[in-house]
Nucleic acid binder design. Structure first.
Lengths: 253, 253
DNA sequence: CGTTATGTTGAGTTTATTCAATAACCGTGG
DNA sequence: CCACGGTTATTGAATAAACTCAACATAACG
């Protein structure tokens, strides 16, 4: 559902907007989703929503800003698992684990809504088609992890940094269609390193190299993707969004 | 449910056995699961169940043997995402993607049952609690991916190989409780490399080094974990199974 | 019994890291 | 507004990790 087509009688939901691009939602489904997005809360950069080993049973709906999740290893090093944007539903591990295996932190100022896992399970009973769609959405997030894993194992440092830039730009553009090839990354080089499995120093060299090769430009915190084709090529980047198909769910009630 | 406690009136299901360790299933739930495990099929080592870009809409229940899933990159390199054992439900990407983003292949002779995604969605409507449990199970598989990603990004080659050995032993032991610290790995060094993001040559050196350090022993295709504590330490290994908690689902109908 | 896949080993190279020093940036308080 | 302290970015030199290439050994298999 395009924003301009929204029905003012139906409560607002970032997640519904997102899912609505792939599947027409019924009004009751939209209402059910909106119920997960009441009591929004604004958090500052750096605010932890979930700490590793937390006992909470909450999930989160991100409405504005950027979050990241990561795990910390015994030696103190951090692996960032991904960055998250409006319309993402987070905190899924709480369905299976007693305590949080991952941390969840705001990378920029952000607006989030939280709800208990019990509410999600209730939704599974009452709106099975919607829950099936959510499950499908989970597969997309899983696939992002898979692609990151493949990049980590089988791609050069330069390629991994390039892939991160493209991925973040694409995610940002899905929220704000006015973004073209220039955007504010909003990450330190150390964060890029923790996401790509590199040291901050090497990230710096790779960014510089991408710049020297004319693939990107940087001014301040702003990044410009100059040669997207070549960038996507060195990154081994695949946009899985094009391959998404939820139409088969439409036939269900 | 321990194997010896099975009710002969209830149809057999590997997945039910697995989930039953965390949550008591009702008889109708077991019946519903068993329906996903009819028409079993035996496949030989190397048999592809899903090829990348396949249009199929099937999921699979693994009943015997070992499978692996992987992605292929443009340059021909392969990233193995994980190895799978009896009781695993596979092929989830078909819920979201038009064509398969990953391949699924038998690593050993294996017995699998396939069912259409439509059957899964039907189960979501009729057995919402069961579907919630399946969703929780999905989080476990996701966490395995996450831990592999973290290992790839932040652990030494030696640690990644060690982690793979421990993980596979643990998975095998969950199926066959008689396995202690000695098991048949059943993987070539190239496969280990594709799973850990290393070359086969380097895998060989790392195995040798683990052996020289007295952490493992090898004879033929058989691996013995000699010093599990130290091995787990170099691997940065965390057994997430201990942290699983599905008891909160028990309160539901 | 030959053929092919897999495993082993060495030498040299590439890639990424560590350590260290300096520069630019940012927010805060004066 | 500016000074200041801490974070972030940049760069060089030395080191360590992993890869490539190549040769050979061993095991698996029809």
């Amino acid at each position: 559902m395009a924003v301009e087509g929204k029905n003012p009688d139906v409560p607002d939901s970032c997640f519904a907007d997102r899912i609505g691009r792939f599947l027409d939602l019924t009004q009751p489904e939209r209402v059910a989703l909106a119920a997960l997005e009441d009591r929004p809360r604004t958090v500052r950069r750096g605010t932890p929503l979930v700490r590793a080993n937390d006992r909470g049973t909450e999930l989160f709906m991100l409405r504005r800003g950027m979050l990241m999740n990561f795990v910390l290893l015994d030696d103190g090093s951090r692996q960032i698992l991904g960055f998250h944007f409006p319309g993402d539903m987070l905190g899924w591990p709480t369905l299976a684990f007693r305590s949080a295996p991952e941390a969840l932190v705001a990378v920029t100022e952000a607006e989030v809504c939280s709800f208990d896992r019990a509410a999600l399970i209730e939704l599974a009973s009452e709106r099975p088609r919607l829950f099936a769609a959510i499950t499908a959405f989970n597969q997309m997030e899983r696939q992002a992890l898979v692609d990151r894993l493949a990049g980590m194992g089988r791609t050069s440092a330069r390629g991994r940094v390039a892939a991160l830039l493209i991925e973040i730009r694409n995610r940002m553009r899905r929220v704000d269609a006015t973004i073209t090839n220039r955007f504010i990354l909003g990450l330190t080089q150390e964060e890029i390193g923790d996401a790509t499995g590199l040291t901050a120093v090497h990230v710096n060299r790779m960014l510089r190299q991408l710049e020297e090769d004319g693939l990107i430009a940087r001014e301040g915190g702003r990044v410009t993707l100059i040669d997207e084709d070549r960038l996507a090529h060195v990154a081994n980047y695949i946009d899985r969004n094009d391959a998404v198909d939820l139409t088969w769910l439409a036939r269900l009630r």
